[in-house]
């Protein structure tokens, strides 16, 4: 028998007036999985997370958390959820430990339970030595870890994270993900995380690309990249602006993207001779210096852009 999904949500739908924010979305999270919800602003990521944690009422669909129906037994289902919103709130004038106590008591942890749990979770996120510091005096990265600790203090099985690393620097983001992945690997927690960042999406076990409230593609990062295999060319040379101009006119090139010192060309189909054809096409007429044209492994960003442009959607 298959392992019970920590989250089993089917046909989620929510409209705000005439706008369908989430439209028939299925979300499944198994123990030990990190599932990424990836999409542009307004794709419905935050709404989907709020539906799943019961903060918003569903227009249609069903949500079950660890097998418990969220609509029938909301309180019991929510006991298993840890939720970190984009702007989580904390009491700036309370200490770190007092903040965690507050989260723990809201979650119904008893007097004799909360402190050992709080100490354990603060040690886990590295805030142990700062338990008595006022939350308002923490750095941005430490505040974010306090938020994570608050979401974890009641040992939830399912973590819902809404763009958790918005506005924090790369070293802090790296730390945050290392913590998250450790928690998943050691405790079998399941995570549903929304993000606009492709390097974060690449860290997920599975990724769901969303647009206009719907899933447009889903799979492991590797399987999503595989869909564009043989279709992404890297071009380096000078002048790059002229190469870009010529690339856009090449037959078989669907899309050209300028990165700092190179171009990525997306081919309509993987032909095997794409690199040579592009090379000779770009050289025609002279006046440019082509350093390199080569096939490269597609990045998730390439996949995202291709799907946004209407690449064949999942059936």
């Amino acid at each position: 028998m298959a392992e019970l999904n920590l989250l089993d949500a089917r046909g989620l739908s929510k409209s705000f007036g005439a706008v369908k924010a989430v439209d028939g979305l299925d979300l499944l999270v198994a123990p030990g999985e990190i599932v990424g919800l990836v999409g542009p602003d307004g794709a419905g990521k935050t709404t989907a997370l709020r539906l799943v944690c019961g903060a918003l009422r569903l227009d249609a669909g069903e949500v079950s958390i660890v097998g418990i129906d969220l609509r029938r037994e909301a309180d019991r289902a929510r006991e298993h959820i840890g939720y970190l919103s984009q702007r989580f709130s904390m009491y700036e004038d309370l200490s770190v430990l007092e903040n965690i106590r507050f989260f723990a008591e809201v979650r119904g942890l008893k007097q004799d339970e909360w402190e050992p749990r709080a100490r354990e979770i603060l040690d886990f996120v590295g805030l142990g030595p700062f338990a008595d510091r006022r939350a308002g005096q923490l750095s941005g990265g430490m505040k974010q870890k306090l938020g994570l600790a608050g979401a974890l203090v009641h040992h939830p099985k399912l973590l819902l994270l809404d763009e958790p690393t918005g506005g924090v620097d790369p070293v802090t983001r790296q730390d945050f993900w290392q913590l998250l992945i450790r928690r998943v690997a050691t405790e079998g927690v399941g995570v549903l995380v929304s993000t606009p960042y492709m390097d974060e999406a690449a860290r997920c076990s599975r990724v769901i690309l969303m647009q206009k409230g719907k899933q447009v593609a889903a799979g492991t990062p590797a399987s999503l990249r595989e869909r564009l295999a043989g279709r992404i060319l890297e071009v380096r040379g000078t002048p790059l602006a002229e190469l870009r101009h010529r690339s856009a006119k090449l037959p078989g090139v669907e899309d050209v993207q300028t990165f700092g010192d190179r171009l990525h060309l997306r081919l309509a189909a993987a032909t095997g001779e794409g690199a040579q054809q592009a090379q000779s096409g770009l050289a025609a007429g002279g006046g440019v210096n082509i350093e390199l044209v080569r096939l490269i492994p597609p990045q998730l960003e390439d996949v995202f852009i291709a799907f946004a442009a209407g690449e064949g959607k999942d059936g």
Binding site: G39, P40, D41, A43, E163, G166, G167, P196, I305, A308
Partner: peptide
């Protein structure tokens, strides 16, 4: 482009 998605960023 902090906080915007890949399409808007692009």
């Amino acid at each position: 482009t902090s906080g915007v998605d890949p399409i808007a960023r692009r």
